[in-house]
Amino acid sequence: MQIRQAVKANARELAYLFSLAGEGLPEYLWSQRAKGNESPLDVGEQRARREEGGFSYRHAQICSHRGRLMGMIVDYRLPDPYPLADLTDSPSVVQPLRRLEARVPGSWYIRALATYETSRGKGVASLLMSQAEASAIAEGCDEMSLIVASENRVARVFQERRGFREVDALPVVPWPGCQTGEDWVLMTRRLGEG
């Protein structure tokens, strides 16, 4: 398995995995932007092809084996200070996530981590998290952060084993088709620990 920087050609798969990691929220948001015959995944692919923005191929690393993409991570340093002045311009379903991100300005943020079902249990997520830690250290960050749905026990246990701890939580604002019912949980890890 190898880890490498994503390229624009990976945008479709990045969008699919990003939506999977986001508990379906990205797909809902993309459906709000779709025009004509565009599918939500088409919109996600366009967003992944952007040169800027939190969800851009430029912030994604992929893990592949024999030319087949197995998983991806989208990670970057959060701004410091973190701007919340324009919070009301964000959709209500996103506002709790932004409020939690604002609690950890300047941290290395794992925005999305996902693997294809057929690639689970093979160490892909661990390799991607190790790459993210190396990137955080290279950028001078002393803290990593991520947000996970409270009922996503598999992801929470995986991150706890890597030294992440819950520091805050806010209720999920439901969206049509939402299957995430309770809270968004902010987890952090000080680098050099766990």
Rank of each mutant, 00 (worst) to 15 (best):
H65Q: 15
G67F: 08
R68M: 13
R68K: 15
R68V: 15
L69Q: 05
L69F: 04
M70H: 08
M70N: 10
I73M: 05
V74P: 00
V74N: 04
D75W: 06
Y76A: 09
L78Q: 03
D80Y: 09
A85C: 11
D86Y: 05
D89Y: 11
D89S: 15
D89I: 09
S90R: 11
P91K: 05
S92V: 13
V93Q: 14
Q95S: 08
P96M: 03
L97M: 11
R98Q: 15
R99Q: 11
L100E: 06
E101W: 06
P105M: 01
P105E: 04
P105Q: 06
G106F: 07
S107W: 07
Y109I: 01
R111A: 15
A112V: 07
A114P: 05
T118D: 13
S119K: 07
S119E: 10
G121E: 05
G123T: 07
A125G: 03
L128Y: 02
S130V: 13
A132P: 03
A132K: 00
A136P: 02
I137H: 11
I137K: 15
A138K: 07
E139M: 13
E139D: 15
C141N: 09
D142N: 15
D142R: 15
E143Q: 14
E143W: 09
E143V: 11
S145P: 03
S145F: 05
L146I: 10
I147D: 00
A149Y: 04
S150P: 01
E151A: 10
V157L: 14
F158T: 00
F158W: 07
R161Y: 10
R161V: 01
G163A: 00
R165K: 15
R165Q: 14
V167F: 06
V167Y: 00
D168E: 10
A169G: 12
A169C: 14
A169M: 14
P171S: 09
V172S: 04
V173T: 11
V173W: 07
